[in-house]
């Protein structure tokens, strides 16, 4: 057992630093995918609510495709397809050979899958916002963009948070797939360590534990964010009475 632990030491003899570097890439990839996936997901959710027929159709098709395809297949299509597309475009201008960045391909593929699921979360969150909010905003003379940004989105975030938190935990696990397109993430660095030490069970178990730790830490973060998002709710529950008793407008 002691010699196995020694294999995890940092430096030239152990694999601790390599595995940590892989973990860091996994975290960076997941964090970079999140804003992209959220933005696309929100756009798709808006498209599904649109009054224009083709936008609704596009939104539904997007969700059906990226929720139905294996994440691995999406990744390959983005990686190899993106490579060919880029090559065709570049060839118009020069003879240079340009390779698709695996990290970017990972963000795009994982982001598309994330967006497909997130759009469903947003869609049901939209349904949870009473019509009066839209009408009230319209009565105040806000236009569509303002209504969305100032009135709807702050409430939407709170309703969508539990669903999105779930998707984040799934995203964290799905990042492992990029190891297949030769990106040096946690799982791939673990495989490199296994190739050198011939200790597959130990190292893959360590990798699993690191994934578990990442999701446990995320859970704490999620709880904190949820508490932060709910803070207005608690205040509002106590609010009206206080206003009724005292607090005349100054």
């Amino acid at each position: 057992m002691a010699d196995l632990i020694a294999l995890l030491a940092p430096g030239p003899t152990g694999w601790g630093d390599e595995i940590l570097a892989g973990t860091w890439l996994t975290i960076r990839l997941a964090l970079a995918t999140l804003p992209f996936g959220l933005a696309v997901g929100l756009l798709i959710a808006l498209a599904k609510r649109s009054q224009v027929a083709w936008q609704r159709l596009l939104g539904e098709a997007f969700t059906t495709v990226f929720r139905g395809l294996p994440e691995l297949l999406t990744l390959f299509i983005v990686y190899y397809g993106g490579q060919m597309l880029l090559q065709t475009v570049v060839r118009l201008f020069s003879e240079r050979y340009i390779e698709v960045n695996g990290f970017v391909a990972g963000i795009v593929a994982l982001g598309l899958v994330f967006a497909a699921y997130a759009s469903e979360v947003f869609a049901s969150a939209f349904k949870g916002i009473p019509n009066g909010q839209w009408e009230g905003a319209a009565a105040l003379g806000l236009h569509r963009g303002q209504t969305l940004r100032l009135v709807i989105l702050p409430q939407l975030v709170r309703l969508a948070l539990p669903g999105l938190a779930n998707l984040w935990l799934i995203l964290l696990k799905d990042t492992s797939l990029v190891s297949v397109i030769a990106l040096n993430d946690l799982l791939r660095m673990t495989s490199v360590a296994v190739g050198n030490t011939k200790e597959p069970f130990f190292f893959y178990f360590v990798a699993c534990m690191i994934y578990l730790i990442m999701s446990i830490v995320s859970s704490f973060g999620i709880t904190a964010i949820e508490r932060w998002a709910e803070r207005g709710e608690q205040r509002r529950a106590m609010g009206p009475r206080r206003i009724a008793i005292g607090a005349a407008p100054s």
């Binding site: 696990k173 492992s176 797939l177 799982l187 495989s191 597959p200 069970f201 699993c208």
Partner: peptide
Amino acid sequence: VYFFRGTPLLAQIFLVYYGMGEF
């Protein structure tokens, strides 16, 4: 349940496919 839901399926399959060779 926590182990199998909290870790990637790919890592699990590596654990079994390569790890079982040790035993």
